[in-house]
C-alpha cells in the first residue's frame, strides 16, 4: 500500500454562476520515501491538492488516506491532531510567526507532541542543524534573509518527523541562487532523512530534482512527456 493514496478525489468551487473543477476524479499514489514534484498551469488546482492531502480542505468526493489513515473521515479537531503528528507544510512565503524566534518557530509543532523537554530540544536542534541555522536560533524572522526564513519554514515542517511533507512553491519567491540552496536542502532531506515530499513548483529545473514528476491540467494528471509537448 502506498503512503499517500488518493482515490476518485474531486473538488470544485462555485463562484457565482461559474463552477470550477480543479480536481476531477483524481487518483494518486505516493510511495514512502518518494520525492514527487507537481507542475501545471496556474489555477489548475495544485495548491488545492496539497490542501486536501493535508486535511486543510475537504474533497467533494473520493477518499484520501495517508499511511493507512483515512484523512477524509476525520473530524476537524482530529484532523488538527493528525496534522501535528503526520504532516509538514512548507509554504511559498515561509509564514513564520514574527513574534517568535527561529528556535521557537521550529519548536511550535513539537509542543503538540508528547515529548519530554529534552526530547523536544533535541528535535529542534536537529532540525535547525539539518537546515544549517543553528547559529540563528535566537534571531527573529525579521532579522533573517528570505532564504534563511524559508529554511526555518522547512525546519518547522520536518521537526515533528512527519510522514509526508508538502511544499507549495517553496522556491517561488526566492532568487536563483537561494532557490538552488533550498533545492539542495530538500533533496538532502529526502535522501538522507528519508522524508517523503510532494512539491508544487512552476520551475521545470526545480521539478527536476524530484524522483517523479507529475503534471496537473484540467482536473487530471497528465504524464510529464505529454505535458512538455503541451508546453506546460
Amino acid at each position: 500500500m502506498a503512503l499517500v493514496e488518493l482515490r476518485g478525489v474531486s473538488k470544485s468551487f462555485t463562484k457565482g454562476e461559474e463552477t470550477i473543477t480543479p480536481l476531477d476524479e483524481v487518483d494518486l499514489d505516493i510511495q514512502a520515501g518518494e520525492f514527487v514534484s507537481l507542475m501545471g498551469p496556474s489555477g489548475t488546482g495544485k495548491s488545492t491538492l496539497l490542501n486536501l492531502i493535508s486535511g486543510i480542505d475537504r474533497p467533494d468526493r473520493g477518499t484520501i488516506s495517508v499511511d493507512g489513515v483515512e484523512v477524509t473521515g476525520l473530524s476537524r479537531s482530529k484532523l488538527a491532531d493528525w496534522r501535528a503528528a503526520n504532516l509538514g507544510y512548507i509554504f511559498q512565503t515561509h509564514n513564520l510567526i514574527p513574534v517568535l524566534t527561529t528556535y521557537e518557530n521550529v519548536e511550535l509543532p513539537t509542543l503538540l507532541l508528547k515529548l519530554s523537554k529534552s526530547q523536544r530540544r533535541q528535535r529542534v536542534e536537529l532540525a535547525l542543524e539539518a537546515v544549517g541555522l543553528t547559529d540563528r536560533a535566537n534571531h527573529y524572522p525579521r532579522q533573517l534573509s528570505g532564504g534563511q526564513e524559508q529554511r526555518v519554514g522547512i525546519a518547522r515542517a520536518i521537526v515533528a518527523h512527519p510522514k509526508v511533507v508538502v511544499a507549495d512553491e517553496p522556491t517561488g519567491s526566492l532568487d536563483a541562487q537561494t532557490s538552488e540552496q533550498i533545492q539542495t536542502l530538500l533533496q538532502r532531506l529526502n535522501r538522507e532523512l528519508d522524508i517523503t515530499l510532494l512539491m508544487v513548483t512552476h520551475d521545470r529545473d526545480v521539478a527536476g530534482i524530484a524522483s517523479r514528476k507529475l503534471v496537473l491540467d484540467q482536473g487530471k494528471f497528465v504524464d510529464s512527456e505529454t505535458a512538455i509537448t503541451m508546453g506546460v
Binding site: I56, D81, R83, L87, R156, A160
Partner: peptide, 15 residues
C-alpha cells in the same frame, strides 16, 4: 489572518 491559518495548518486546534 495568515498567521492564524498557519497555526492551524501546523496542527493547532482552533480552541
Amino acid at each position: 489572518v495568515r498567521e492564524i491559518a498557519t497555526l492551524q495548518a501546523i496542527g493547532y486546534r482552533r480552541r
